[in-house]
Design a protein around this nucleic acid. Sequence first.
RNA 1: GGAGAGAUGGCAGAGUGGUCGAAUGCACUGGUCUUGAAAACCAGCAAGGAUGCAAGUCCUUCCAGGGUUCGAAUCCCUGUCUCUCCGCCA
Length: 428
Amino acid sequence: MHDIKFIRENKLLFDESLEKRNIQYPSKKIIKLHDEYLENLKKTQDFQEQKNILSKKFSPKMSKQEIVSLKKEVSILKEKIEKNKSLSDKKYKELNNNLLEIPNLVDDKTPIGKDEKDNNVIRVEGKKKVFDFTPKNHLEIGENLSLLDYDKAIRISGSRFSVIKSDLALLNRALINFMLDINTDSFNYMEICIPELVKTESLIGTGQLPKFGEDLFQTNFNDLWLIPTAEVPLTNLHREEIINLNKLPLRYTSFTNCFRSEAGASGKDTKGLMREHQFGKVELVSITEPDNSMIEFDRMIDCVETILKKLDLNFRLVELCSGDLGFSSSYTIDFEIWMPGQNKFREVSSCSNCKDFQSRRMKMRVKNFENGEIFYPHTLNGSSLAVGRIIVAILENYQQKDGSVIIPNILKKYMKGIEIIKPQCLKI
RNA sequence: GGAGAGAUGGCAGAGUGGUCGAAUGCACUGGUCUUGAAAACCAGCAAGGAUGCAAGUCCUUCCAGGGUUCGAAUCCCUGUCUCUCCGCCA
């Protein structure tokens, strides 16, 4: 959510920034609506003041006649107030609805571009694994191992769901534990268990609503929705709160399942762990002072990078261009891992600095009790990482000619002594 | 699901029609005292908005939405949520 005062004072800058997202001159309409709102607000307040003054004049000493005429005066004012208030309320709502649909401003660091083709690869880490055979994709590997079962998944829930068994299920759990351990023990994030069903307000707070409802699953219970990412409940931990400045920075990590309808992705990655309606993800969220958010962003990038390096994977960092940038973000770096079975890099993490865009939407504020100053903090989020896609990366990068898969060193202590996943004869 | 109680500032908690944006305590900030600290004492301390160079002035807000009234934190209705007891359940 944008600050209306900022828009008024920085019309050009505002429009220029949004033009990078291919949005044309939104400030004009916003300012017009705001003017109309203010006009009615001022009238409402003036009448309100007059009414308050009259109300205070009532006293037991007054004659009946005086009371009757005073009441008459008040009732005339009441009508005027009601008329103007309903107008100003209407304008306010309209203004607000418009503001809620405008994406965040684009940071200067964000490269300008139209779509993902204009994204900027800033760094490549690690080397592509060399195979003396043609590497298979994760789906083939998993099914050959009898550890990925799509017949069962389809029977239970349909397409875009997975059934993961035995040692591969253990690997799934190992990854979650590894990532949460390192996030808490080494990176100083606080682990949080958090609801995976959230209210509409929470989704408005982080920016998924009102615009992107069709990407989400909505339940028929109250107004609860399944979360598309733990960013939603984690960032909303402090919705409508005033946080004491001395508590910053706040760093939270959480494992949750994430649910996405994948409405716009028909035909893409229909089977397997790449693009599911339900997937596990360990998330990082930071809340910082505005001046520190880019430093915190670099720190977050370091955290994610450390994990990928410990898993000994070949990956690259990609700066998203303005046209590919998410609604709430002003600067985003994606991590992409080389997937030998697909012969391309695939996204496994996305780290964004949302600045004060989300904190404004959810009225999360910070107070400096030393000088009384109140301000909106910056919020950042990043995946560390999408578990399903990391399984894909491990299967494809650590596969061997005989179809078995080696467990990366760092995960061995989480794998009950299993060092290699072999094709197995399971009872189901 | 049944019965009852409740929702007030960062927290706790008073407040049943005007003098209430709201007692008091804690926390916090500044000051006095002290070598320093603690204690004690004094003072300050809600948010959002309009207007103004500023000081200030004004409007709104005591869970939310309606209503009664000249006037509502206070009375009435509806909704949401929380707590206690019972039932059920992991």
